[in-house]
């Protein structure tokens, strides 16, 4: 069951992104920025939490989920450490993903070179 809800939720979020690409001619960079900020705002408003409850990875894997993790981390650290938590919580919660993306990309960059689009 969790697979089906993940598939549907993730599919819908990506399909919304496709509407933005086709209708507004936004570049993928802008789409990514829009989605992470949307995730932050929706989580802040309490709207995204129920989507995560139902959709699982379908809601956390898209970049809106990255925004969700940032806010969850900030709130957790504010609860533990007060004001300082506003600055420490977000990156703490997402550190694994960011560090992995940077390091794996460095390795890929060292070893591989680009090929023409086919």
């Amino acid at each position: 069951m969790s697979y089906l809800t993940a598939f549907i939720t993730g599919g819908i979020i990506c399909a919304i992104g496709q509407i933005l690409i086709d209708k507004t001619k936004l570049t993928s960079a802008r789409i990514l920025v829009a989605f992470i900020v949307a995730g932050v705002i929706l989580t802040g408003l309490g709207i995204y939490e129920p989507i995560v409850k139902w959709g699982g990875a379908g809601a956390t894997v898209p970049l809106t989920g990255f925004g969700y993790s940032l806010v969850k981390g900030v709130i957790k650290d504010v609860n533990s450490y007060g004001f300082l938590g506003i600055f420490t919580g977000g990156l703490k919660a997402t550190a694994g993903g960011i560090a992995a993306a940077v390091f794996f990309s460095l390795l890929a960059g060292l070893i591989f070179r680009p090929k023409i689009k086919t």
Binding site: C14, A15, I21, S28, I31, L32, V61, A101, V102, K117
Partner: peptide
């Protein structure tokens, strides 16, 4: 990505692709 469009841009994998592709390109 050519077929999937947002389907492979929006997930965290698209974020990783956006870091790895310039790393490979601009070495």
């Amino acid at each position: 990505g050519k077929r999937a469009g947002a389907g492979s841009v929006v997930p965290i994998t698209g974020f990783a692709n956006s870091i790895a592709s310039p790393a490979i390109e601009y070495k």
